[in-house]
Design a binder for these strands. Structure first.
Length: 467
DNA sequence: TTTTGAGTTGTTCGA
DNA sequence: GTCGAACAACTCAAA
């Protein structure tokens, strides 16, 4: 007996899957396997919601595989041991997986490759990190030149269609997925490749044409909402990029063209942060920028809890955090506002916020999440001014003009008129009583005064950049 | 090696 | 209400 093992990690799809294609090209039977790695399951960055999304994705993938004559093998344990056993059981053969960029994944794969015939394929990114370097051979650390270099490379070939049939082996023991981690069927983000394709179609047919203008609006479904699917490879980066390219080619007006262009740019940001993590793995532990490693962060558990639970008294921040807790997703603009509030207004270490987001986001990805947090904290690759402090009131007025995002996630503010929705503490006391929303009783008073907090942050950053 | 232009997503202040 | 300048100095990328 001889078989090819397709080791699935964050590529839960049959279409446009180079690792699967490489395994099938061996011409032997295929064993699709997912390994529950206790180290990853116990990580402080693992999140219940994301694990449940992953398991639902595995069930969906299993169903897709069965339709094609195969079935998913799920095993628990150290990947090296599991794969070793599996190769032994199946009489040896080949082993393929999609390359990943995180330190843990890379060390794990290097260890396995020393002992087993593991071959890694590209697929996570359109242009793998090691292919994009400056003329002197060092990696880019600024987005704009990176994106120019990225665009100067040949556009990738069209996505590979899914295989119609899979050469199968007699059934192999399947371990049941933990039932405790059940992704609710009512989740706004049902897992699976078919769902990812459905969303991609919806997005490319209408939303993308307004994406350049509406992607920042928190009260509108103006984004793709595809991040959880890209996170687990239920959709490939190449499929996304081709969708952007086709949308641009088919655009009949400037706005549509700009929308497609803006979305491709976001995909390049994803590639950029993957490359940053690949080339500078230390960013998971510390500031990218050496000059900003001594900011005097506050140790303030009560303030952190208020932020995490969405009761800071700043409606747009609270709406953001409650959206995250309720759905496992947060609008990108809201992520920046919430992150800015934690790091600047509360002066709490970005690493605490990074971990919290990892624990709650369906799309929690080490590279993108870290890049976003370091950008907001001003410690990252972005060389822009450190004194850029988001004003939660202005951001709310600008990107949630009628307050509908706030009202959706902070129901106690439903009755508040538009003019006070982003600063309810400015309401006259009699109006508060009249509307049944008394500050300090029905909704918190602001945790900090933004103007004072801003001054404190500027001073702290000034101090932090001295050394 | 030196020089030059530029850097996602902002806010505030004063005219 | 709108608009441009100031916010500081630094680092990066490429010529």
């Amino acid at each position: 007996m001889n078989a090819s093992i397709w080791w699935i990690r964050r590529d839960l799809r049959l279409s446009d899957n180079p690792a699967l294609a490489a395994a099938l090209a061996q011409g032997t039977a295929l064993i699709p396997v997912f390994i529950l790695d206790p180290k990853l399951l116990a990580s402080p960055n693992a999140g219940h919601k994301r694990l449940a999304f992953l398991f639902a994705g595995l069930r969906s993938l299993d169903a897709d595989l069965r339709q094609r004559g195969s079935g998913l093998v799920v095993r628990q344990g150290d990947p090296l041991e599991v794969l070793h056993t599996l190769l032994h059981e199946t009489g040896g053969g080949s082993l393929f997986a999609e390359a990943d960029v995180s330190s843990y994944a890379r060390r794990r794969d290097e260890r396995i490759m020393r002992q087993l015939p593991l071959k890694l394929t590209p697929g996570l990114n359109i242009h793998p990190p090691e292919t994009l370097l400056k003329a002197d051979g060092t990696p880019y650390t600024v987005f704009t030149p990176f994106s120019q270099a990225w665009r100067s490379l040949a556009f990738p070939g069209r996505p590979i269609p899914p295989p119609a049939h899979l050469p199968t082996l007699p059934p192999i023991a399947l371990q049941n997925l933990p039932g405790s981690l059940c992704h609710p069927s009512s989740s706004p983000y049902p897992a699976g490749e078919a769902e990812a394709q459905r969303r991609l179609a919806t997005f490319s047919q209408s939303i993308i044409s307004r994406y350049a203008i509406e992607r920042d609006r928190m009260d509108i479904d103006g984004t793709s909402g595809l991040s959880p699917y890209l996170r687990f490879g239920m959709l490939s980066a190449r499929q996304a990029a081709w969708t952007a390219r086709d949308a641009e080619a088919q655009a009949t007006d400037a706005a549509s063209r700009q929308g497609a262009e803006a979305w491709l740019n976001e995909l390049i940001w994803r590639e950029f942060y993957a490359a940053i993590l690949y080339h500078f793995p230390y960013v998971r532990q510390m500031s990218f920028r050496l000059g900003l490693r001594s900011i005097p962060w506050r140790d303030a558990p009560a303030d952190f809890a208020a932020w995490a639970e969405g009761r800071t008294g700043y409606p747009v921040v609270d709406a953001a955090m409650r959206q995250l807790q309720a759905t496992g997703w947060m609008h990108n603009r809201a992520r920046m506002i919430a992150a800015s509030f934690l790091t600047k207004d509360l002066l709490i270490d970005w690493r605490q916020g990074e971990r919290f987001f990892m624990q709650h986001l369906l799309d929690g990805d080490p590279a993108a999440n870290n890049g976003g947090w370091q950008w907001t904290a001003g410690t990252g690759t972005d060389a822009a001014p450190y004194f850029r402090v988001f004003n939660p009131i202005l951001q709310g007025r600008k990107f949630d003009p009628q307050g509908n995002y706030v009202r959706r996630w902070v129901p106690e503010l439903t009755a508040i008129p538009n003019e006070f929705i982003h600063s309810p503490w400015t309401m006259p006391a009699n109006l508060q009583h009249h509307l049944g929303c008394v500050l300090g009783k029905d909704y918190p008073t602001p945790l900090v005064d933004h103007d004072a907090a801003r001054q404190r942050a500027l001073a702290a950053y000034q101090k932090g950049r001295k050394i």
